[in-house]
């Protein structure tokens, strides 16, 4: 982990859920739309009411990179590494980033089915991140 997560006041519940190995998004209390990342207001109906709701943790790869450049010193031991952008199965506009858990970056392709894998920082820092593992396609 190059940079530890820095939750803000809106996103703290999301990061706490990730710490428990649960993947969640917000559900608007007004129109029911799901949204991510965390924000206090719905940009469709402008309701301030929401709840955190679990999602399946499955999605499809929308885009990815393979990073080679060492932008920060801690990256030096990790390059080259992929970063994925994943569309969650619950909605076209629910996108999450993450690393690749298992598999080879050469096997990444548009629409590849993936599932969330939670990775606890080994240093006891109390941080957990979400990576993505290729899975068999849904029937």
């Amino acid at each position: 982990m190059m940079i530890p997560p820095e939750p803000d006041r809106d996103s703290a519940p999301w990061w706490e859920a990730v710490r428990r190995h649960e993947l969640t998004v917000q559900r608007c209390g007004g129109c029911g739309a799901l949204r991510f990342p965390a924000r206090a207001v719905c940009n469709r109906c402008r309701s301030l009411e929401y709840e955190w709701t679990p999602v399946a943790g499955t999605g499809r790869v929308y885009s990815w990179i393979v990073n080679h450049q060492v932008f920060l010193r801690p990256m030096k031991e990790l390059v080259p590494f992929p970063v994925l952008l994943v569309r969650l199965d619950e909605g076209e506009d629910l996108l999450m980033y993450g690393g690749l858990a298992g598999g080879d970056a050469a096997g990444l392709r548009d629409g590849l089915p993936v599932e969330a894998v939670f990775e606890d920082a080994p240093d006891g820092a109390g941080a957990t991140i979400v990576n993505w593992r290729p899975r068999a396609a849904a029937p």
Binding site: M1, M2, I3, P4, P5, E6, P7, D8, D10, S11, P37, I65, N67, F71, L72, M75, L78, F81, V83, M96, Y97, G98, G99, A127, I129, N131
Partner: peptide
């Protein structure tokens, strides 16, 4: 505010 969801993966 987006950066918190990206930087942990070395993406910034």
């Amino acid at each position: 505010f987006d950066v918190q969801y990206q930087a942990p993966y070395g993406y910034f």
